[in-house]
Write a protein that binds this DNA or RNA. Structure first.
Length: 493
RNA sequence: GGCGCGUUAUCCAAGAGGCUAGGAGCCGGUCUGCAAAACCGUUAACGUCGGUUCGAAUCCGACACGCGCCUCCA
């Protein structure tokens, strides 16, 4: 099967055929840098990260552009509040964005341009829109005349009359039509400005993306992505600008990720019900957050809650535990044999062999179907179960079973690479999770160790009553004892 | 008001006319002095009412409920 993607423009899943065979141009709207990122940004980041990774995995030469919008009213407002300049604000939150995305394990895009580095491109597009009658100058501002572009609203599937019926459109004297939007805004005193043929000012929101995408990907390119909330007005306006100026199709495939909800309601700045990535990462491991995001299809809404994050962590621990178990076996003996004589494997071994034979085709099928990561994870889990079962039932490791295990590990890590998972050594990740939980309790590790020793002594003397007392005491404080042949370790519940 | 989306077992979540999704949990088993942890096994579902079909979670229609966009948003 070949890659199929859901295109917002047509409302259908379509076969993905790039403009130039073997190459993909992809532009994703980054952020306006005026505050810390919330988990909605995390979702968009992760979703397009795995799309980027999968396209590369599928063999495409991908040029991935993700912008920073570093000039905007919100940035200026923030600067005014803090009594500083817009550049300070923008630079601070660009840095914060980079940190957050790095922690979430996002691969760096090919290019990460800033709006303010593309003023000449912006001005050039506006000039050409004016020349073609799509835009007009009004008191130092420049507006896009939406009525001059018959395809306006083709992405969101509305029409101008309906939009006005919504009646939440401000009618400014400067605009000819209430839906017209600003391409260039004349600067007020004290505001940052750039020179333009229409006087000093700054670009409106939307035009920077038309300019940067054209600069790096050309007038027509393959994929444009962003959150669903950008469909209108941002992407609609980008289409009007780019197609109005260039007279040709702007984007072939429009991809939009769904929202992050809190209690089934959209998380948003205006509702105030948002969590920043930093807040969430104080409590949860970044890979857990990524895994949670991947557990639902990228277009579906996803409900953010402690319970759902905890479940995601349990699931991820299951896979990491399996990887750790595979590592333990491979640490002692290296595989030497090729898997040729499948018949000599046990029944469970043959089943596992069959599973790993189907692994990549099934994984690819899932991802080919509009990047269905949730389904792809199902394939991983089934393989994990098969591997655990094989380990449990194999008394003695033969060269053949060792290579089977090595193969499983390789496949899980290969798929993990596409999903941005399992980059950490399993034992390191698992102990990281353990110690992160340990921070939350009020008993010192020394104290716990002392009690464990006391319990071991009691048990050695077959004083199980005392031993169980200690166990219950620790349990009451949220500490779970893990007995094994190698001794007793502990974990936080 | 206009446009659009969703409703799958206890919870989360894929699937989209006949084919075991998966995870968390529950329960049972292995292990254990007993437990826990881990592992294995198992369970159960398609909002309501109609229609199409040999066959419907899946297609069509109506209804109910929830949500989104139409204002800055990922």
């Amino acid at each position: 099967m070949a890659l199929r993607v859901y295109n917002t423009l047509t409302g259908e899943k379509e076969l993905f055929v790039p403009l130039v065979p073997g190459k993909v141009g992809m532009y994703v709207c980054g952020v306006t840098v005026y505050d810390y990122c919330h988990i909605g940004h995390a979702r968009a980041g992760v979703v397009f990260d795995i799309i980027y990774r999968y396209l590369k995995y599928a063999g495409y030469d991908v040029t991935y552009v993700r912008n920073y919008t570093d000039i905007d009213d919100k940035i200026i407002n923030r600067a005014n509040q803090e009594g500083t300049d817009y550049r300070t604000i923008a630079d601070r939150y660009i840095e914060a964005f980079d940190e957050d995305m790095a922690r979430l394990g996002l691969a760096k895009p090919t290019l990460e341009p800033k709006a303010t580095d593309h003023m000449s491109g912006i001005i050039h597009i506006i000039e050409s829109l004016i020349a073609k009658g799509h835009a007009y100058v009004s008191e130092g501002d420049v507006y896009y005349a939406v009525e001059s572009f018959p395809d306006y609203l083709k992405l969101s599937g509305r029409n101008l009359e309906e939009m006005q019926a919504g009646a939440r459109v401000e009618i400014g004297d400067k605009k000819r039509h209430p839906m017209d939007f600003a391409l260039w805004k004349g600067s007020k005193p004290g505001e940052p400005w750039w020179q333009s043929p229409w006087g000093n000012g700054r670009p409106g929101w939307h035009i920077e993306c038309s300019a940067m995408s054209m600069e790096f990907l050309g007038k027509t390119f393959d994929i444009h992505g962003g959150g669903k909330d950008l469909v209108f007005p941002h992407h609609e306006n980008e289409i009007a600008q780019s197609e109005g100026a260039n007279g040709c199709q702007f984007v072939r495939y429009w991809l939009h990720n769904g929202f992050v909800n809190i209690n089934s309601e959209k998380m948003s700045k205006s509702l105030g019900n948002f969590f920043t990535i930093r807040e969430v990462l104080k409590k949860y491991d970044p890979e857990t957050l990524r895994f949670f995001i991947l557990s639902a299809h990228y277009r579906s809404p996803i409900d953010f809650s402690d319970q759902n994050l905890d479940e995601a962590q349990s699931g991820l621990e299951r896979i990491y535990s399996c990887l750790a178990a595979l590592d333990d076996i491979l640490k002692e003996q290296s595989p030497s044999a090729e898997i040729t004589v499948v018949e000599s494997l046990s029944q469970v071994g043959q089943e596992l062999h069959e599973k790993i034979e189907q692994f990549l085709p099934r994984f690819v099928d899932a991802m080919d179907d509009d990047f269905n990561a949730a389904q792809a994870l199902g394939v991983l889990f089934e393989t994990v179960r098969g591997a655990n079962r094989f380990i449990a039932e194999t008394k003695e490791m033969t060269p053949l079973s060792l290579s089977l295990i090595a193969h499983v590990r390789h496949l899980l890590v290969e798929a993990g690479g596409v999903l941005g998972l399992f980059a950490t050594a399993p034992d390191v990740w698992l102990s990281g999770i353990r110690s992160a939980k340990a921070v939350q309790i009020d008993l010192s590790p020394e104290e716990i160790e002392r009690l464990i020793v006391e319990r071991a002594e009691a048990r050695g003397a077959r004083d199980f009553k005392r031993g169980d007392e200690i166990r219950d005491l620790l349990l009451a404080k949220g500490i779970v004892l893990l007995d094994s042949a190698q001794g007793t370790t502990w974990n936080v519940k």
